[in-house]
Amino acid sequence: MGESILQLQQIRKSFDNTEVLKGIDLEAAQGEFITLLGASGCGKTTTLRIIAGLELPDSGQVILEGRDITDWEPNRRDVNTVFQNYALFPHMNVADNVGYGLKIRKVPKAEIERKVEQALRLVQLEEYGKRMPDQLSGGQKQRIAIARAVINEPKVLLLDEPLGALDLKLRRQMQLELKRLQKQLGITFIYITHDQEEAINMSDRIGVMHEGVLEQLGTPNEVYYQPRTSYVADFVGNANILHKNGETLAIRSENIRMDGESVCTLDAVVVEKSFAGGQLRILFRLADGQLLTASRYGIDNDIQPGETVKIGWDAKDAVKVIDNDKDENQR
């Protein structure tokens, strides 16, 4: 990993007496792709706006390339944002939109033209310079918004759910494109999404946010296989959260065994069976009332609702996590 370029230190922020950020610490390396993942209202957009300077934190520091920029105006920061609704200027054509940042900085006209052309080529929309934003499709607007931001060669690019408004197929395609673009430009990306697949596909590291707290920051592997808290386990891996002997365990549904192996020691009643997306999902109720889901590929399973079967899991698949619902202090 490269050298550190952006640091957030103990960022706190409240709106109307509600604390939306409860001390966020984050460090991003040069050229890194970091995703802030969380449900709506978890504070991820506010974090992004604080980095951009569109919001001031109540306390804490934002440090870019070793300089404290916490109080800097947004226009002085070497950071650009791709907004959720694209925010393309409706009264300017595509070329003027893309060249806006350079024009503000009084870059010579010929150079602006050259760079705009280059930026449009980068997002594969060379022919669209003369179009107006309302003549573009959602995916095209998205690319123009990205071109408009990266043309300024920011140190850090902030992306606020940039693919949220696109349909699934286009989203998959844009994920790959964005990743390619990020590699090509070598710019640090701070990317926001509520889609864990997107986060896992694209990121070098994922920061899972929940109620204004950064629950875990780690590689997709770490977040998926070694969740630190029950929330992360549930949100990223859709894991079963089980309370046993005073411990909280996260076990993903594909790791629940019911094949008669020696680990299968628990009695479980089949509550419900469903088949979706090539996966059979079985909902069990344990003797102590806790529910858990097992999943299998295929439908070759002849157990029926109401039956009692023995289930269990390998010790390595049960990850000890901090329970968000129980223990606020341990975090």
Partner: peptide
């Protein structure tokens, strides 16, 4: 007027005065 346009303008390097006139 969509305020995110003004924010975009500020984000792209415009002072609040320039953002007002251009957007």
């Amino acid at each position: 007027l969509d305020m995110s346009l003004v924010e975009a303008s500020r984000d792209l390097g415009a002072s609040s005065w320039t953002a007002f006139w251009t957007v």
